[in-house]
Simulated assay, not measured.
Amino acid sequence: MAEKEGSGEDCTLAEVEKKITEAFEVFDHECNNTVDIREIGSIVRSLGCFPTEAEVQELLSKVEEEEPTGHVHLEKFLPVMTKVLLDRSYRPIPEDVLLHAFEALDENKCGYITKEELVKYLTEEGEPFTQEEMEDMLSTALDPKTNTVRYRDHISKMVVDESEDLPL
Rank of each mutant, 00 (worst) to 15 (best):
Y151L: 13
V149T: 12
V119M: 08
E17I: 10
I20F: 02
D143Q: 11
P94T: 07
V35Y: 14
D165P: 00
H71I: 00
E3A: 15
M1Y: 15
S163H: 13
E53P: 05
D165Y: 03
P167E: 05
D136V: 14
A101D: 00
M137E: 10
I43Y: 07
V84W: 10
K19E: 06
Q131N: 03
E95V: 00
V160I: 12
L168D: 01
E9W: 11
P167Y: 07
A14I: 00
T148M: 07
V26T: 10
P94F: 10
G48V: 05
E9G: 03
A23T: 07
S89M: 14
E58T: 06
T82A: 04
V63T: 11
A23N: 06
E117G: 08
H100D: 09
L118Y: 03
H73T: 10
G48L: 05
L78A: 13
P51M: 02
H100E: 04
L122P: 00
T114A: 11
S46K: 05
L122H: 01
E125W: 12
L60A: 01
E15C: 13
E30K: 12
E124K: 08
L99R: 09
V160E: 01
E132C: 06
I155V: 01
G48K: 15
N147M: 15
A101K: 04
E124W: 08
L99G: 07
V35N: 12
K120T: 08
V56D: 00
G126N: 03
P128T: 07
E58Q: 03
L166R: 09
V160C: 02
H29M: 08
P51R: 03
Y90G: 06
E107N: 15
L85K: 07
C110N: 13
N33E: 05
C110P: 03
K18R: 14
D36P: 05
Q57P: 02
E22L: 14
E22A: 13
V72R: 01
P128M: 05
V72L: 02
S7T: 10
V97C: 11
G8N: 06
G70H: 00
T140M: 10
A101Y: 00
T146M: 13
K76E: 14
E127T: 15
M134L: 13
E125A: 12
E64M: 11
L98C: 05
T21W: 05
